[in-house]
Design a protein around this nucleic acid. Sequence first.
DNA 1: CATCTTAATGGTAGCGCTACCCATACAATG
DNA 2: CATTGTATGGGTAGCGCTACCATTAAGATG
Lengths: 346, 346
Amino acid sequence: MDSQEIRSRKRHRGKGRVTLADVARQAGVAPITVSRALNTPGRVSAEVKERVDAAVEALGYVPNLIAGGLAAAGTRVIPVIVPSLAILTFIEVIDAIQKRLEAAGYQMLLATTDWDLDREASLVDTVLGYSPSGVILTGLRHRPRVISRLRDWGRPVVEIMEVGDDPIDMNVGVDGVALGHAMASHLLEQGYRRIAFVGSHLGHDYRAAQRLEGHQRALEEAGAACGGVLEYHEPASYEVGVRALEDVMAMTPRPDAIHCSNDIVASGVLLAASRQGIRIPEELAVGGYLGLPLAEHLTPKLTTLAVARSEMGTQAAELLLERLSGKTPERPIRDLGFTLVKGGST
Amino acid sequence: MDSQEIRSRKRHRGKGRVTLADVARQAGVAPITVSRALNTPGRVSAEVKERVDAAVEALGYVPNLIAGGLAAAGTRVIPVIVPSLAILTFIEVIDAIQKRLEAAGYQMLLATTDWDLDREASLVDTVLGYSPSGVILTGLRHRPRVISRLRDWGRPVVEIMEVGDDPIDMNVGVDGVALGHAMASHLLEQGYRRIAFVGSHLGHDYRAAQRLEGHQRALEEAGAACGGVLEYHEPASYEVGVRALEDVMAMTPRPDAIHCSNDIVASGVLLAASRQGIRIPEELAVGGYLGLPLAEHLTPKLTTLAVARSEMGTQAAELLLERLSGKTPERPIRDLGFTLVKGGST
DNA sequence: CATCTTAATGGTAGCGCTACCCATACAATG
DNA sequence: CATTGTATGGGTAGCGCTACCATTAAGATG
């Protein structure tokens, strides 16, 4: 009775789960050998490996990765920290990261900062508590505490979306200012002279603000007057595009082109223009970013600067995995660039 | 020299991280008291709590959640398993889940099955290895092993998207067959008689296939002839809609309405029709699902069956959290229903 | 044939934390 | 006054796994 009570009490914690020790007993080897058979199969004989596999199968053993993580000081988890999941761009990047990591046997822990750097800082603390194998975060701007903590941490860190010459560790992204500059230059080349910039959430999304910076720099260089900046203090949406078109059409003098901070807003403009019979690009030219699939199905097609989002995710994951496998990746800082996809909207 | 070497060797594993014991020493209390001060502050005196907080701050202590998880047999992680991240629907649900979980101090571990139930089964095994606090998975169809393992597991499980009367544990979703039935009924009511169904990825996405089932049942009940089923063996995209329109226009006799398996495809149809000058709904009526934001910006607006995706995510997370806090949620099976949003496309 | 490798396995000692039980101090109860 | 709470803090013993070192047997080397 007594010993049974003790056993049942033990169960309470261990939940009666099959452990590595059970497998070892069944296979007639030491626990450590089971661990090796599962994690570094090259280091055990084929015969032992087979016995262990059979025992695993027979008992339905599932490794406790938490225990393994504690012992080895590293779980196979990669936290990915992004500002928001409501932005298609991040989704595509995340999708690519996740696919690549999962293929390599790592799991993605997803967290969002809601564009708040302080939240990011506390999230970094939290996720480091999971002893992750590496970390992927968005952008190059972080609280000093985040930067120093991750630098000291000694494991791979990849910053995505933006590029710069002094990342925490590794970096894959595009140059936001160059993006803005390229679109503005394109519009100028096409002969437009009163170019307005439509931005949403610029206060939060500083990468969108960088595009505005590039825009303004290009106008300055060309000696062109600024066609105005319309700012909407909310996340990008078709709705913002609809309102932007209204507001632009009401401006005097009226801009002859608008430079939208992203494709969603630009698409909203195009959809509203088509509804209202406003001719694009004769009355108003429209340019956007990112190369969303929708852009090429609109009439006219949206001129956009396409960014290789999936590629960014894949490369970020690969840099991380390379470092985890002990290699030193070449070019740990990667500018993925962008491509002008000329549609009928400019 | 010797003792220093030993210390540095220890460092190798422990990475010199600040531990709970360090905090205890600094605060002049026992480690267990620090644990209590941090996890159940109500059980320590205000004075001790203050001393501990000060020590935490001074040392920059970050709890090792892996160690805590091992000891307590439960990390604050909730794996969310979905078929794909390329589908907007899942993204919105995930976003809502993540927001709610993070607010309650839980982290979301995201994994994708790529529509493969065997992959799902092995993913479930893997994520259970993280001793998660609960699990959220998609749909009600799973391998028997998944069902029995999760039933025995004893922690909260929520199945989302679909509803049924025998979930593993809890369930929030909508009835797929009812969706298909409602849209087909709507089209019939509007007087359309040759209604074609356009489906993508039906072999993988069995929930889309359920909508087709509802569609066919509605036609049967009304004694209407089947207007044909067009199936595309690829994920939904605008492109599929473009091709579907082409294919439908080439059919003889030509359908007078098409029932698309989701809004992306339906939008592709509408965009292509507008480009080609095909009048909607006079020449062809179009209906879709989900209530994507794009639907109401198209000309004409798309008639769609809106599903409360964010609500689904939030409720799934809340059911889970409620159970984690020890309560027994009322209505652990929730059918969220849907709303017909009539646009100009039908 | 002694010595050195190399391969394969085992033993020990934690990783950092919390569940469980116990000890103490003081208030409340009859 | 003895008895029974009720806070508050501490001690011990793991959770299930892997790093590290030791051991053994077999082959390679001079």
